[in-house]
Design a protein around this nucleic acid. Structure first.
Length: 340
DNA sequence: TACCAGGAGAGCG
DNA sequence: CGCTCTCATGGT
């Protein structure tokens, strides 16, 4: 008898799975629309607590000073449907229902700590939100992006991904990484009949690639940077695990020594892989948000801006940054969809 | 068609 | 420090 594929329900509130998996922290999650489930049990898990969209995540306490009643943030992706991807060497499908997240794998899932760690389901969002500055921009951002979370990713995949991210649109980063995984990643177990899936290629594997092979994945001038980083990790000149033990500033220094890693990419890795909550990546979008929301009339010098981001947003500045990032992109999209 | 994208590095004043 | 130019590719 074939045993039923593993599935599990994680009860968690204030978790917008769609926004979190698609907002540009990680680049491999695919939305698959209506879920087709491996097992009746998983389908049951999803259906059991399924509820109308409006009642999802209602427990959150943040709202913009007595204005709108709590309802799903405008612009967030549909609650229905699933997200498929690979974490480490495990294929996984995730579906949000009314009470939490239903996860399915293709093979033994062990104790699922690999998934709860990745999703950071144990984070107390009320505490995080309470630590944000009480100003209008943050009120607006947290109200619009309710349930947005930070993932905790594997350092090499995160570093490599963000080396590839510079001056690229998110859709394009996804394409590059998809090709990289398909060509150089180890295949992982998938459900019967499912399209093949691949792990993110190891540093050792990418270190063996020629620059031309990497350029074939359309990464352009980023190819030599990725290759050098891969060789450095593979040769144990750079120990990414060691960085976990360091203070944030020392870990940042180590990352900045990598060719192709500047302040923005270093902060992304500090935040998305190592969980240094103070890291505050400033990309073109966050820069736009900061100027528009906090410095509407004058143009702050880079130095002034650095001082501001280092002090204004508190101990969870990185979290605040992700809310600003998502918020400014939502409003940009909306104004594009429906010009005034 | 132009402009821009989750930048970084090198050269310059 | 702050400015500018280049790098490769494709989306909007």
């Amino acid at each position: 008898m074939a045993e039923t594929p593993p599935s599990m329900v994680f009860p968690v509130r204030d978790y917008d799975l769609a926004s979190t998996l698609s907002c540009g922290q990680a680049f491999r999650w695919e939305h698959v629309g209506a879920a087709t489930f491996l097992s009746p049990r998983a389908a049951e898990d999803v259906a059991r607590a399924s509820s109308p969209a409006g009642s999802w995540g209602v427990s959150l306490q943040v709202r913009s000073s007595g204005e709108t009643p709590p309802e799903p943030a405008a612009g967030t992706a549909a609650l229905r449907g699933s997200w498929e991807g690979v974490i480490g060497s495990r294929w996984v499908r995730q579906t949000a229902n009314g009470e939490g997240i239903v996860a399915e794998t293709a093979q033994s899932a062990g104790d699922w700590s690999w998934l709860t760690e990745y999703l950071q389901t144990g984070v107390d969002m009320a505490a995080v939100l309470a630590s944000f500055p009480d100003d209008e921009p943050m009120r607006a951002a947290t109200a619009a992006c309710r349930g947005l979370r930070l993932l905790r990713q594997e350092p090499w995949e995160c570093l490599a991904s963000f080396i590839l991210s510079s001056t690229k649109q998110i859709v394009q980063i996804r394409q590059i990484i998809a090709q990289l995984c398909e060509r150089f990643g180890e295949p992982v177990a998938v459900p019967p009949g499912h399209a093949p899936a691949f792990a993110f290629p190891s540093a050792a594997r990418l270190a063996d690639c020629t620059e031309a092979e990497l350029r074939d994945c359309k990464m352009g001038f980023r190819a030599p940077n990725l290759r050098r980083a891969a060789r450095s990790v593979a040769a144990r000149e750079l120990d990414l695990e060691r960085l976990r033990l360091l203070p944030a500033d020392e870990a940042r220094e180590a990352l900045l020594r990598i060719h192709g890693v500047g302040p923005k990419v270093a902060n992304c890795v500090l935040l998305f892989a190592y969980g240094f909550q103070s890291a505050f990546p400033v990309d073109v979008w966050v820069l736009k948000a900061l100027r528009q929301l906090y410095f509407p009339r004058r143009r702050p010098t880079p130095q002034r801006l650095r001082a501001f981001t280092a002090t204004h947003f508190g101990p969870n500045a990185g979290f605040a940054q992700q809310y600003l990032f998502h918020y400014i992109r939502l409003t940009a999209k909306q104004s594009h969809d429906r010009p005034i």
